[in-house]
Nucleic acid binder design. Structure first.
Length: 111
DNA sequence: AAGCTGACTATGG
DNA sequence: GCCATAGCCAGCT
């Protein structure tokens, strides 16, 4: 009985991302078992507006640590600002220390 | 109901 | 190392 949609599963994972850490769309997709459908994760973020709670979508970046989804926030720099406020450093839109900050749900949650 | 869309990723040239 | 192509699949029109 799946009363929750795919989107809501994405939200659950995104909400579990620790402060100051990031993950990728593909990582979430794999954790949810949808394999290569990383697009759906991003698509879920796009629909996160319909979710009642606030989703820390700024902690989800693409596999390069690039802020590809920034245009979907209130402003083109909101996503970077949010992450910087969490102590994350950038070089333009490229996230620094991405390999260190990366939080893999499959690795962190699947115990 | 059938087709388009997309905040991705991997691969090949 | 950059550009083009293809696979992916759930939601929206």
């Amino acid at each position: 009985m799946e009363e929750i949609s795919f989107f809501e599963r994405v939200y659950e994972v995104v909400k579990l991302i620790p402060y100051g850490r990031v993950t990728s769309y593909g990582a979430i997709a794999r954790y949810l078992g949808t394999g290569g459908s990383a697009r759906m994760v991003g698509w879920a973020m796009n629909a996160s507006h319909s979710h009642l709670q606030s989703i820390p979508a700024h902690r989800v970046v693409n596999r390069n640590g690039l802020l590809t989804g920034k245009q979907h926030f209130d402003g083109p720099d909101v996503m970077r600002q949010l992450l910087e406020s969490e102590g994350v450093l950038f070089e333009d839109d490229q996230l620094l220390n991405f390999d260190i900050l990366f939080w893999d749900p499959m690795k962190e949650l699947a115990l």
